[in-house]
Design a binder for these strands. Sequence first.
RNA 1: CAAGCCGGCCGGGCUAUCGCGGUCGAAGAAGCCGAGCUUUUUCGAUCGAGGAAAGUCCGCGCUCCACAGAGCACGGCGCCGGGUAACGCCCGGAACGGGGUAACCUGUUGGAAGAGGGCCACAGAGAAGCGUAUUGCCCCCCUCCUUCCCCCGGGGAGAGAGGGUGGGGUGAGGGGAGCGAGGGUGAAACGGUAGGGUAAGAGCCUACCGGCGCGGCUGGUAACAGUCGCGGCCAGGCAACCCCCGCCGGGAGCAAGGCCAAGCAGGGGCGAGGUGUUGCUCGCACCGUCUGAGCCUCGGGUCGGCCGCUAGAGCGCCGCAGGAAUGCGUCGCCCAGAGAGAUGAUAGCCUAAAACAGAACGCGGCUUACGGGCCGGCUUGGGCA
RNA 2: GCCCUCGUAGCUCAACGGAUAGAGCGCUUGACUUCGGAUCAAGUGGUUGUGGGUUCGACUCCUGCCGAGGGCG
Length: 114
Amino acid sequence: MLRLRSATDFERVRRDGRSYAHPLVVLVAARSPQAQAQARVGFAAGRSVGTAVKRNRAKRLLREAFRSLAADVAPEWDLLCIARAPIVERKMPEVRAALAQLLKQAHVLNSPDQ
RNA sequence: CAAGCCGGCCGGGCUAUCGCGGUCGAAGAAGCCGAGCUUUUUCGAUCGAGGAAAGUCCGCGCUCCACAGAGCACGGCGCCGGGUAACGCCCGGAACGGGGUAACCUGUUGGAAGAGGGCCACAGAGAAGCGUAUUGCCCCCCUCCUUCCCCCGGGGAGAGAGGGUGGGGUGAGGGGAGCGAGGGUGAAACGGUAGGGUAAGAGCCUACCGGCGCGGCUGGUAACAGUCGCGGCCAGGCAACCCCCGCCGGGAGCAAGGCCAAGCAGGGGCGAGGUGUUGCUCGCACCGUCUGAGCCUCGGGUCGGCCGCUAGAGCGCCGCAGGAAUGCGUCGCCCAGAGAGAUGAUAGCCUAAAACAGAACGCGGCUUACGGGCCGGCUUGGGCA
RNA sequence: GCCCUCGUAGCUCAACGGAUAGAGCGCUUGACUUCGGAUCAAGUGGUUGUGGGUUCGACUCCUGCCGAGGGCG
């Protein structure tokens, strides 16, 4: 899984992308400026999520959820997953369902025929 | 067995599959052809958060700032001894309290009689150095009353109305002087008992007790305890108010600091002083005074990499010293070092797996949060032998 | 990483260590008005963020937490 790492990448996605909200997570999607073999993704958990342990927990859940869904994402996208506070209390299947729903809404998945 | 007290320890484990970060090894790819370096992919081995990693409240190491120098400020600490790199921490002890049947837990701690200033509301006579109001006690003077005495009446004796510039007593009122025991107020009121003394009293005097100060002796390293003598008779509380005494403190912080690479462009104004040492004065060092330090302003560039960066006041076992904190020694071990920031997901078993919580230079403490469990010692109560 | 400030009524703020913690706005009731507003009168409202401590006595002084806001790098 390719990751977004620099602060400038994060700022660009937030500025140029469209956002899709869910009580557990917010997804921001923008087309990547460069050609790439795989979509890139970044994970964010702000102060509002809670303490360091809670923020880490939120990002782990999101990374694991995205990992199981990454194969279907079209390669030209840069994505940003922003955690919301309630996610800390939830289990894996709920988080994966939430993320899958958002990816579908954002139309970043490969079409089944391709 | 139950309840409790103290000390120490643990902080989910195992298996399978998928996944993450570091290090080492092997192979491949890219950057310049190669060595080498960097990035990256795959495979294998190995390691991978805490008892508080937290709050950032203390104390250190480390690094840099030319030296760290003086004085004054300012801040911190404060019974005694020991431990320690150091501490506001830890261990042991002392004095005075508080809780518990007990084991034990817990609070306070230099100086308020002398260096000084300040505060002590309300109530109360009086609140810090003098004062004394009311009730009360005592004495003197005046007035009034009177069951006693004396005198007049008053005569032989007795009883007796009435009277008196008379004496005594008792009581009431007024004035003056003395007094500090009791009641009362308050958070707090200027020693206690007995005797003497006195008009009545009072440390006014004496003895004893309590308390204080000084000196000696004994025990203890010391705080202090015990004891003897002397003194003066009493000295309120607050220094988490200022303050005094003693001790400590140079400043900044790993974005410290060092190295490599890349990039750029200077212009205008003010200007003789400026910078560092937390604040002030001095001192010191450096930069500068028209070849312009510094400040203000417009504009330009960068925001990459490496080191620091984890072998240390380190951890474990044992032995020795010590009452303990702790120290010393032998042997063994290597135990995270990231840079969008690594520990997760699923399934099964362990009855049910759950608490607080995530390293960012390191370490010693303190404080705060926390489900549950284990071990040892001790106390009290009950039962059995 | 280093450091500072502030938490008082629903809101904005006061309060030498000594009242029953005050003021304005608000809210409630009444008066005035045909009704409303404005005005007038009366009333309402506080664990002084929280736990300890110093003091006879704490919003005030000391200290441990909790929560806001800000500064420097």
